[in-house]
Design a protein around this nucleic acid. Structure first.
Lengths: 175, 175
DNA sequence: TCAATATTGTTGCAAGTGCAATGATATCGA
DNA sequence: TCGATATCATTGCACTTGCAACAATATTGA
């Protein structure tokens, strides 16, 4: 039997293609207007919810390698969108927070992002959307059982559609 | 109104996280055993179906930038998994095809990839899976209507679950 | 026919990325 | 108390990536 394998019917490939297409469409909104990368966008969005947090916290919450977070934060600080202040009580930590400029940038971008997402959500029935998310969660669960797969990040486990409180750590997101 | 935006509830982000997690799990199979990248994996798989094809054809079919294809093919040739031969009749084209070694590599990897995909597919009901794919297609359709979004690639349009014939171009995939 | 245009594949370059190593600081345990 | 270990953020390095420019070849249209 020859190895016949149709890439376009391969689930992981299909998911990657759609995901990348949507991500790219969204990135137009924050790249074109503010020159942001995916990493920078995720950092900004996380900060808008969680206030002053550490690199480690961002790394935990937004599925980015910690070096990627570190560099994204450095670029954002360079551009004046975030500020870093040392944390007293723990000399290793850095508290990263939005500046007024950063918040203004988000206020410009977020409505557009929301609009695109709404268009996608509205294009299918609520039941189908529920099913879609249920399947996604099911596949995450499959991967959770797979010792070879990368573990799921904290916020993706307990944060989805959940309360606005940061999670198991301290309320301010540090420590 | 403050810009409150929950990344973990943001559709594009959720999709990206799941997609990347699954892709990484699959990549373990071809990276660990043969040191392949995503691009190289996609090229190999495409070749296994479509025989001798051009860089342009691969670019069209597997959602990879043409320079990425060109470099992936160069690496694969270096490793002896594919061969490049000039096309007589058109001096610009190169016919890329699997070598015996390349086919052997695929024969090792593909069953594992299939197994993982099957585990995912089997973890949800056929109806839910249908719905999932229907929603994916619907979102592609939304993006198809969006002038800012990147157009869908040819094979993703007409090739899904379709016949084994290469598509609108010549049967050998060249020209 | 042949100049203008298009297509194909590759490459230069700047920027981004993952991984491991590093230095600095905190915490733990005898 | 204090050495061993853990945690945090950054950095070095090799590698990948996207984009634009490029050379080579084909195609087109007057």
């Amino acid at each position: 039997m020859p190895t016949r394998f149709h890439l376009s019917a391969f689930l992981p490939y299909r998911l990657a293609v759609l995901s990348e297409r949507i991500s790219r469409r969204i990135s137009v909104e924050y790249d074109r207007s503010h020159g942001l990368s995916v990493a920078e966008w995720r950092v900004l969005v996380h900060l808008s919810r969680c206030g002053a947090v550490s690199v480690r916290d961002i790394h935990d919450c937004v599925n980015l390698e910690k070096s990627r977070v570190s560099r994204a934060v450095a670029r954002l600080e360079q551009d004046g969108l975030v500020s870093k202040t040392p944390v007293d009580g723990d000399g290793r930590l850095v508290a990263i927070s939005l500046t007024a400029t950063g918040r203004a940038a988000l206020d410009e971008i977020v409505p557009n992002a929301r609009t695109i997402e709404k268009t996608l959500r509205d294009s299918v029935s609520p039941e189908d959307l529920d099913t879609f998310f249920r399947v996604m969660e099911q596949w995450h669960a499959v991967l959770d059982r797979d010792p070879v797969a990368k573990p799921r990040s904290r916020m993706d486990l307990d944060g989805v559609e959940g309360p606005a409180t940061p999670g198991p750590r301290d309320a301010d997101g540090m420590r």
